[in-house]
């Protein structure tokens, strides 16, 4: 399972997106607002989820904002951080 698929599965399970399947999530759709419809509380949950599942701590707000644009961006961020540690 690649990082994108793993992320989609984790998002559905940990954010209780019960009505969605991984196939329903567009790689490039925005995670917040339109698209997946996540909100500010989910942003905090996402930071926790990334740390818990990948051991990556997001300390920088700007870094997080860029990574949380879409599943595609988040997967690229995770892969890049894992490659440099």
């Amino acid at each position: 399972m690649n990082t994108k698929e793993k992320l989609k599965k984790i998002l559905i399970e940990d954010l209780n997106l019960e009505e969605l399947t991984p196939e329903d999530i567009d790689d490039n759709a925005p995670l917040f607002g339109e698209g997946l419809g996540l909100d500010s509380l989910d942003a905090v949950e996402l930071v926790v989820i990334i740390q818990k599942h990948f051991g990556i701590e997001i300390k920088n707000m700007e870094e997080g904002r860029e990574a949380f644009r879409s599943v595609e961006a988040l997967a690229a961020y995770v892969d890049q951080r894992l490659a440099t540690t």
Partner: peptide
Amino acid sequence: NDGDICASPTYFA
């Protein structure tokens, strides 16, 4: 299990 940094805000609420 994961340390206080991983405490879930949803569980807290």
